[in-house]
Nucleic acid binder design. Sequence first.
DNA 1: CCTTTGCTTCCGGTGGACGGAAGCCAGCCT
DNA 2: AGGCTGGCTTCCGTCCACCGGAAGCAAAGG
Lengths: 306, 306
Amino acid sequence: MTPDVPEPAPSRPVGRPPRPGLPAGSGLTSSRARRGPRSGGDTVTGRVFSILEVFDHDHTALTLTEIARAAALPVSTAHRLVGELAGWGALERGGDGAYRIGLRLWEVGSLAPRSIGLRERAMPFLEDLYEATRQNVQLAVRDGHEGVYVERLAHPDAVRLLSRVGGRWPLHGTGVGQVLLAFAPPVVQESVLASTLTSFTARTITDPAVLRRTLAGIRRDGVAVCDGMIDLASLSVAAPVRGEADAVVAAISVVVPSPSTPGGIEPRTLVPAVRAAARGISRALGAPTPTRTQRAVRPEVPRPSS
Amino acid sequence: MTPDVPEPAPSRPVGRPPRPGLPAGSGLTSSRARRGPRSGGDTVTGRVFSILEVFDHDHTALTLTEIARAAALPVSTAHRLVGELAGWGALERGGDGAYRIGLRLWEVGSLAPRSIGLRERAMPFLEDLYEATRQNVQLAVRDGHEGVYVERLAHPDAVRLLSRVGGRWPLHGTGVGQVLLAFAPPVVQESVLASTLTSFTARTITDPAVLRRTLAGIRRDGVAVCDGMIDLASLSVAAPVRGEADAVVAAISVVVPSPSTPGGIEPRTLVPAVRAAARGISRALGAPTPTRTQRAVRPEVPRPSS
DNA sequence: CCTTTGCTTCCGGTGGACGGAAGCCAGCCT
DNA sequence: AGGCTGGCTTCCGTCCACCGGAAGCAAAGG
């Protein structure tokens, strides 16, 4: 079996089409023949996916009719498919009749190398980082034009974050996102730079030229400091995590209260810790040279893998 | 939207059929008509699932032919389905041509209330517990006759565990498992007690009578101490986590070196911490009464029968 | 009582899934 | 080179499983 190197995965085209905002009414898509070019449901698997896509963080429990409506499927069809999904365990039906994502689906999902494989090796370092700062620590990978948060440790008293495990954010607005973008293939960078950079706060970078300069700075320093770009009260310090081929496969960050707020923290103090953790994870992932700055970073004895 | 109460989920029948151990040869299942009663693949979704089921912890990257063989599907069929899966992001194709579970699937999977919903609220307590012990901390739920590990914090220097996030273990052999079993519906308990209790070490409970007594003890004490039942070198202390309806929805445990080994730890010292953490999580989940204390067994107010 | 809303079952028509076969490409052996 | 193997992809005719309207149920509400 080939080793589980989390790789760039050049597979599907970047950027999924945004979910068609729940048409609500219009139960008129009938008669197989008349079925127009629907988004993603002209094949059975497509319909199944359109059902799964209906669930998100704000909709974790849905009734059959809600699913049918949101997926633009006739109720009877949805009924059958949902039944099959539930039979396998991809969905679970609660006592209230509502369907939720099932444990079985979570199980196979957790086999994704880009989540668990990465997560497992990163955890020890994230924990150290967490303990040192007692704030928010995050781990994210890139998928298309977005950063996907794979892991997060959050102190209950730390700054409240808008991100969540399993959530997505545009690359240009977050610390991890900027890092991932800075080291993404040129095509992706240009594509993002050419797109409209949505603004979240007054400090969000929306000027492509500024962003371009920022990315260059990140590449130079190996660290990103992102103050109040998504939430004025919080500041994040992020660094790249490299994999086997020395490619950047992930990014980690620490999020603390912005120094412009009471109790805020000066980012400078965090940089070394974040950098060190990122380097540690990279080493654990098998990245080649641990950067040439640090001398004599003797690789630790490889643990006997299970 | 109904609240995400992680509930027993009486949906699918307990215990999935074990994977049919990769038939290897026999590419003879041809001619749609002759297709005999195959395990789970007479419907499109069934075939899709049989593909997903091919992946497990020891097989996270598979080529098309491997998938086809393992799922007992003709290559061309597998090719089409796998293509659709990859197109959506349920699978990802690496540069080496092998398929892996995709990030997108992980994303929807992470919406499972029994994993993330639970995990999110439990994390802070698990972290405290982890920090207090600097050993292994685990969170698990029950699915059929098995415990599924939902989260785990492990110190690199702690005892090596056999369990993994996303992994399964029979209920009778582990600390969390015994807790989950002790509070499972009677049907499940009897079913497990009636089945063959596979032995992992010399100390694994294999006698139904002993197990029954152990479970009663766990119900009485609200804690399980499980020494060397799955690995002679490790001991686990586990406690139940209760949800809204006061039902046990999960279990947590701390795993430390067994006192019978050098550097072993006396379980007694851990019990209060584990119990406290479990109670904390229960409270965060909305469990009603924080359990009656050890002494002063004052009969609590009769719960409103749901 | 009737109405509404949501879930489940049924069943005939048909279009999409199916999979054998053939074409391709790389690697390997002789 | 030439042949061979093993894996991946494309093609296309057959046929059956999927589809979804319709009808039947059950519960909630007026």
